[in-house]
């Protein structure tokens, strides 16, 4: 493991919703400047992990550090793209307005967004190819356009670490490619991007780092080393037949073996 301070360090994070535990003892280090996918089957706790890191769900135990400091002190370094379906797109507001919301945290109490925030928002909209839509009511956007607006809102946060919850969900192919380009550009700028992802086929093209999750952390590290049939079998359990047909890559000889205790894999 690198001696450099990781962009995100999660130690022993356990989360319970009400009486049901959903994440057990997660350890995760993400080096700065990586594009990382969080993957796992439905109900593995991917969204919960992001929400727990962001303090939106109270953890039962554990600790989150961003660039060497406690999360609550480093919050300004973090940007967030929630799931597109989590808001009401019929809300009476415009594209530009939504993007400016990314600056609300930095603005402080009682202050209104002004020309500076407006300019930042316009620049971000330009970056995602939505500048012409700035005055558009948000209900009149396609799924891909809505996702771009959410991305622009995260961009104006001007963060070091971005958390994105399924940004490719329900978007058109062109938007997906545009988003990937943008993510890679962020990486070039030294930013860290952590994405909840579903599509096993695109992992190798889009990401260089991966965490496999299923209630606990199954494996994590560079895609080349971790994205193996062996690990996928551990993460996805019974659906392994289907997954093997996707043939991610051959297991490297030193693939970590974390599944040697009973009760883990259910058919």
């Amino acid at each position: 493991m690198s001696t450099e301070t990781p962009a995100v360090r999660v130690t022993d994070l356990t989360v319970a919703y009400g009486e049901l535990p959903v994440l057990w003892d997660i350890d995760m280090d993400v080096p700065a400047g990586k594009l990382m996918a969080i993957m796992g089957p439905n109900g593995a706790g991917k969204t919960t992990l992001i929400k727990a890191i962001l303090g939106l769900v109270p953890p039962a135990a554990g600790r989150v550090e961003i660039h060497g400091g406690l999360y609550r002190d480093q919050r300004h370094l973090v940007g967030y793209v929630p799931q597109r379906g989590s808001v009401d797109w019929d809300f009476p507001t415009t594209v530009l307005d939504v993007v400016m919301m990314g600056r609300y945290g930095a603005l402080g109490w009682f202050k209104r967004p002004g020309k500076r925030e407006r300019d930042q928002a316009l620049t971000a909209l330009d970056k995602v190819g939505m500048a012409d839509f700035r005055a558009r009511q948000i209900s009149q956007l396609s799924g891909g356009q809505q996702q771009r607006v959410f991305l622009a809102r995260a961009l104006v946060q001007d963060a070091q670490v971005y958390f994105m919850d399924e940004p490719f969900q329900g978007v058109d192919a062109r938007t997906e490619l545009a988003i990937v380009d943008l993510l890679k550009e962020l990486r070039t700028l030294g930013r860290t991007v952590i994405v909840v992802h579903h599509d096993l086929q695109t992992v190798r093209d889009y990401f260089d780092w991966i965490t496999l999750l299923n209630v606990r952390r199954i494996a994590g590290g560079p895609v080349d080393e971790v994205f193996t049939s062996e690990n996928l079998k551990l993460a996805y359990g019974g659906r392994v037949e289907f997954l093997q047909r996707q043939a991610p890559c051959d297991p490297p000889p030193d693939a970590p073996d974390l599944g040697s205790y009973p009760g883990r894999i259910r058919p």
């Binding site: 356990t14 319970a16 009486e19 535990p21 057990w24 205790y261």
Partner: peptide, 23 residues
């Protein structure tokens, strides 16, 4: 009452999982 009891059960299992993860 159950949540209070479960907090301990939960913490004990968490301890076990913590140990297993680093074994």
């Amino acid at each position: 009452l159950r949540r209070r009891r479960q907090r301990w059960d939960f913490a004990q299992v968490m301890l076990a999982i913590h140990l297993i993860q680093h074994e």
